[in-house]
Simulated scan of single mutants.
Amino acid sequence: MRAIELFAGAGGLGMGVSLAGFKPELVVEWDRWCCDTLRQNRKLEKSVIRSWPEPIEGDVRRVDFKSFEGKLDLVTGGPPCQPFSIGGRHMAYDDHRDMWPEAVRAVRETRPRAFIFENVKGLTRASFATYLGYILLQLQYPSLARQVDESWRDHQDRLQRHHTSGGRIEYRVVHQLVNAANYGVPQKRERVVFVGFAEGIDANWCFPRETHSLDALLYDQFKTGTYWDRLKLAVKDRVINPSLESRAGRLRERPDELAWRTVRDALEGLPDPEHDKSASAKILNHRFQAGARSYVGHTGSSLDEPAKTLKAGVHGVPGGENMLRRADDSVRYFTIRESARLQTFPDNFVLHGAWSEAMRQLGNAVPVTLAEVVARSVRDHLRAHAPFTGNA
C-alpha cells in the first residue's frame, strides 16, 4: 500500500507505518542530521527502511505533492511540535515553525484514502483549544484552503460556516491522546494522534484498544512478585515507588491487560556502559555519557517503571532528563542505544551525530511500536472497507 511520510525526523513514525505494510513513495525532512540518519540506515541490509526512497532534504513548503493525487493510500507525519510543546514558547499559529498548514496541503493535493498525523500532548492544552478545533476543521475540509490575504481566524469562521451549513465532509477525522506505555512501549509518552478516512470509505473505525496497563505491572510486582522473580532481582536492587506500592495494595485481582514494560525490561541484555565499557563498546551507539546529576524536577527514570518521556533537550540541557535512576538513587544518562530501545527502534538502527544530537532525534521521535499499532489498524480498515491501491 502506497504512502508518503512528511516531517520524517529519525524515522520512528515511518518505520512503524512500514512495518504495518505501507511503502513510502516520498519521504520529506528538513533537518540534515535526521536525513543523514535516514540515508545511512537505508544502506543497511536488514534495515526496516531499506526500501525507502532517498529522503528529500529541505523545506516541505517547496514540495509539490500534486503528482500523487489519487494514488496514495496514506499520508503520515508529525508536524513540528515546538509551537505547542510544554517546553516551548507556546506560540502556536504565530510560530513560523507551525507546519500544520503543510500537512493539510499534502492531504489536499494528494487526496489519500487515509492519513495519520501526530503531535505533542501540549496541543490539547486549554490555551490551544481554539487552534486544535481549527486544525480539525482543516483536516475535515482540506479543499477549502486559506486564501492569500485571509487571517487564520477568518479562515476558521469560513470553515465553521461550511460545516454548520451541511457541507460535504471530505475526511472523517478522530483524534485521541494516547499513552505509548499502554501499547507496550517502555516509556510514558503521551501523543495526540489524528486519523482520517476519506469520504466514501466506511468510517466505522476507532483507535486500537490499549493492551498494557500500570495496574497489571503493579499486580505482578507487589501481589505475586512474578516481575521480580522473572528478572531474578534481590530486594536491594529493586526500585520501589511507595505511592505505587500503596496503589497495588488496593488491587483485588489482576487486570486482563499485559503489564507495562519497564526500563529494566527494555535494557535487558545490554551491558552497563559505565562499569563495563569494553563490552559496551562492541554495541552500536552504546557509550557512557558522563555528567548526569539529579536535582529538583530532574530525578531520572525508575528502572522498574516505564521511562519518563524522553526529551529532545530544553533550556540548554542536551537530552533534558534522559537519565535512569538506580535503587541507591544514583543516576546516569541513558546511552543512545538505551534511548533507542525506549523508543522501540531496532537494535541495528544507527543514529547519526554526537550523543546530544542523537538524543535530540530520539526525543522528537514517535515510538515505532505505537506507530505500528495505529497504522496496522488503519491498514486493516482500508483493506476491509475499500479497494486499495498498489500491492497489499
Rank of each mutant, 00 (worst) to 15 (best):
L44V: 07
Q221V: 00
P367F: 06
F349K: 11
F334W: 15
G390N: 14
S280H: 11
S85Q: 12
W30D: 04
T309P: 10
H155V: 05
E372A: 12
G58E: 03
A20I: 10
G225C: 00
E305C: 06
V60M: 13
M1T: 11
E257A: 04
D276T: 14
I283N: 06
V350Y: 10
R158V: 06
Q361N: 10
F117V: 01
G249W: 06
T299W: 13
T211S: 14
L13S: 06
G225W: 00
E338T: 14
P255N: 03
C81Q: 12
Y333A: 06
A307R: 11
Q160K: 13
T389D: 12
C206P: 04
D73T: 08
L74D: 13
P346H: 11
V27W: 01
E305V: 07
V235E: 02
R97H: 08
H162A: 14
L19M: 07
L267H: 03
A234V: 01
H385K: 05
I240P: 01
G87C: 09
V314Y: 09
E245H: 04
V350D: 07
Q138G: 09
A281P: 01
A203C: 07
D329W: 15
P83Y: 15
V378W: 07
A358E: 08
E29Y: 04
G300R: 13
G319Q: 01
P306N: 11
S67R: 14
I135Q: 02
D94P: 06
S51C: 08
E57S: 12
N182P: 08
F349A: 09
W52Y: 08
A281V: 04
R252S: 15
V192D: 00
S127W: 08
E69Y: 05
D215N: 09
G12K: 03
R376S: 13
E210L: 03
P367Q: 09
F288C: 11
R293I: 10
W52F: 07
S301M: 13
E170K: 14
F349G: 10
T299H: 12
R146D: 08
S243E: 05
L310V: 09
R105T: 02
S47Y: 00
K232A: 08
G133T: 05
A365T: 05
T389C: 15
P318Y: 11
G225F: 00
S47C: 03
M99R: 14
Q187C: 10
S278L: 15
T211F: 06
T110Q: 02
A126D: 15
A375Q: 09
R293Q: 12
V27M: 04
S51M: 08
G11F: 05
R209N: 09
L19V: 05
D31R: 07
F22Y: 15
C206L: 12
R105I: 06
V368S: 11
L362K: 15
T369H: 14
A180H: 02
G291E: 03
A248Y: 00
P271N: 10
V366F: 00
A371D: 01
L26M: 11
L267I: 06
Q343H: 15
L258A: 12
D256P: 10
W355I: 12
T389I: 13
G313Y: 06
